[in-house]
């Protein structure tokens, strides 16, 4: 799956860039982090516990930074093994833009899940990945910028899902249009269609 988003962080670009390379900041921001250790200037190992509802899986893996272009951005990529749960891997292209005294952080995430999680949990993967990305970037924005981050969603697809009522947030996990016909949440079209129809049915019921 792929998703993009933008955060406005109340801090200068240099500060944001440094934070993006600071293991301590990452430790504070990666959801479910249990261990993180720098193994070189551009790599570290991490153990993350991913909790999604009843599912709770530990992933151990490596994270590498590439395409470093200080202070404009980098690509962060990693792969984690989750034992019985399978594996997760992905990357995010992060770019930093100056916006007055603040910084606009743009991310373009590409995530893939394999093994058991993909096999039986495909309906939840997109939403989960989105949530984890949002958790990370909003915590990051908060940690670095001090105040709750201001979100500026730039949806990859027209936002169909209802927007959350309260900040902080980027856009809600709008499910990606996907090839699967049958998975719940498999297709954006189904959601929109289904929602409209259900609302219409209810209006019809109430009109009686």
């Amino acid at each position: 799956m792929q998703m993009t988003g933008q955060y406005r962080i109340e801090a200068p670009r240099e500060t944001v860039w440094e934070a993006l390379n600071d293991v301590e900041v990452l430790r504070l921001c990666i959801p479910g982090i249990e261990e993180i250790e720098k193994t070189s200037d551009t790599s570290f190992t991490a153990k993350v516990r991913a909790k999604v509802g009843p599912v709770s899986a530990r992933f151990a893996g490596e994270v590498t930074l590439s395409d470093l272009d200080p202070p404009k951005g980098y690509t962060i990529s990693g792969e984690g093994k989750g034992g019985a749960a399978g594996f997760a891997k992905g990357g995010a292209k992060v770019s930093l833009e100056e916006d007055g005294a603040a910084t606009l952080l743009n991310y373009d995430v590409n995530a893939q899940v394999g093994g058991k999680l993909a096999q039986i949990g495909s309906r939840l993967i997109d939403g989960t990945a989105k949530k984890m990305a949002d958790d990370f970037f909003s915590r990051f924005a908060e940690t670095v910028g001090g105040a709750p981050a201001e979100a500026g969603p730039t949806p990859a697809a027209p936002a169909a899902a209802p927007q959350p009522a309260a900040p902080p947030a980027a856009q809600e996990p709008a499910p990606e249009p996907s090839d699967a016909d049958v998975g719940a949440g498999a297709s954006l079209g189904v959601w929109v269609t289904g929602l409209l129809v259900a609302v219409l049915i209810l209006i019809a019921i109430f009109a009686l």
């Binding site: 993909a118 096999q119 039986i120 495909s122 309906r123 699967a180 998975g183 719940a184």
Partner: peptide, 9 residues
Amino acid sequence: QLLTGSYMD
């Protein structure tokens, strides 16, 4: 990856 790997999908 098999996305339809259970009776859920």
